[in-house]
């Protein structure tokens, strides 16, 4: 269990610390947007790239924010509880968080399959076919903007972010179990 916690936390910490610098990419893109507008050759892609960056920023940064304890809780009662009571409650309610993330992930997977041109209702089978069988991508979804980027990369990234969130939630659960056993975390 400790191995799992260490591995998940380390991966999410590294990715999160890398993601936190995306804010400077956003600044640069928006600054370029301003400059290109001032020189009357406005760029077509700036707003959308900034939006993609924002998505990457908080989807990949989310698990690290859990580690830092940045995700607020309503803590009027919670704050006054003992470590044990906190651990018990968290160990139970973290399943709510996981359910949310699993549904989100499922939606993300089918949306990603759609973005690769799969219109059926078994996205996992589609991905399996794609990777191991003779599956083929269909009409790939493109953004409706003039720049028309393909959407599967950002959707894949979102799925990855949600998956990492899920792993982080599991890691938090493991920590609570350790706490309940009276071990130091």
């Amino acid at each position: 269990m400790r191995g799992f916690i260490a591995a998940v936390d380390a991966v999410n910490r590294r990715l999160g610390r890398a993601a936190m610098y995306i804010i400077f990419v956003m600044m640069a893109v928006l600054l370029w947007s301003t400059i290109s507008k001032a020189s009357s050759q406005p760029s077509l892609w700036t707003l959308e790239v900034a939006q993609f960056c924002m998505i990457a920023y908080f989807f990949i940064g989310g698990p690290y924010a859990i580690q830092m304890g940045s995700h607020v809780r309503m803590d009027l009662f919670y704050d006054n509880w003992s470590v044990r009571r906190k651990a018990i409650t968290d160990a139970l309610t973290v399943f709510c968080l996981m359910v949310y993330l699993v549904v989100l992930l499922w939606g993300g997977i089918s949306s990603t399959a759609y973005s690769l041109g799969y219109f059926g209702s078994e996205p996992l089978g589609f991905f399996a076919d794609l990777m191991f069988g003779d599956g083929q991508v269909g009409t790939m979804e493109r953004s409706r903007t003039i720049w028309r980027p393909y959407l599967w990369p950002i959707k894949t990234l979102m799925c990855l972010g949600i998956l990492l969130m899920l792993l982080q939630a599991m890691s938090e659960l493991c920590k609570d179990i350790l706490r309940l056993r009276g071990e130091e975390v």
Partner: peptide, 13 residues
């Protein structure tokens, strides 16, 4: 929310 779980988890669930 009163259980002290992270706000986004409670709402999303």
């Amino acid at each position: 929310l009163f259980s002290g779980q992270r706000v986004f988890g409670a709402i999303g669930f």
